[in-house]
Design a protein around this nucleic acid. Sequence first.
DNA 1: TTTTTTACATCGAACTTCTATGTATATTTG
DNA 2: CAAATATACATAGAAGTTCGATGTAAAAAA
Lengths: 114, 114
Amino acid sequence: MEKLSKELIGASSTPIILSILSKNESYGYEIIQNVKEISNGKIEYGDGTLYPVLHKLEKKELIESYWKTADNGRKRKYYKISTKGKKELLAEKENWTSINQIISKLWKIEPSLT
Amino acid sequence: MEKLSKELIGASSTPIILSILSKNESYGYEIIQNVKEISNGKIEYGDGTLYPVLHKLEKKELIESYWKTADNGRKRKYYKISTKGKKELLAEKENWTSINQIISKLWKIEPSLT
DNA sequence: TTTTTTACATCGAACTTCTATGTATATTTG
DNA sequence: CAAATATACATAGAAGTTCGATGTAAAAAA
């Protein structure tokens, strides 16, 4: 039930958010809940954390946003992944695979004697 | 042959360095070469990048250092992992496993219809 | 009617990596 | 023998990050 380290959360935020948006459009608040659920509470973005990340991704043109008013009258800023974002997601997947290979290689060779 | 992203390099540096030092004592310059080799050139720390990381780990008491003069007369600062560092490495492994589960879960469910 | 939840935004503190710069010595090349 | 390269460590400044705090606003629940 441990929370993940800052570094890992930072490194994973872009691929996680892009992955979520590659399936469905979503908005900030919902993404926070979604990630919390998927990660079994191990990743809990604060709102002050997620929004700047979304703005950064939008600035890089990996995602696009538009305002929508929900049935209940609430205003939400919806985000969707862009073509550029899909390419970036692919690259991120490759990166992730690489680092995993490197790390698992390092750990497998590790001697059993502590 | 792509280089890895900054974020991933950052997130992996602590577990990678601790892993290397859990097998053998080593020094900065050698660690840089070692990581480059293990990662097939995908991770290339600059010296200005690695030394501050080593200092940080030492400050946190995860590793210890001592000066040693090699046969050729060169001075090297050797680092070894501490008991605290070994515990930290275990924790890092768990973190890494967690984030991998989260991410692979996200990617497996991904629909084929774009 | 008050509190909680939903929803977004920004600011400053703290921390990181990276590039550049500096020092110094051993080894290799011309 | 001189010059260039490789070895070896250190630090400073720029740029980028996360996070907690604070602010605004409205809907839903107590």
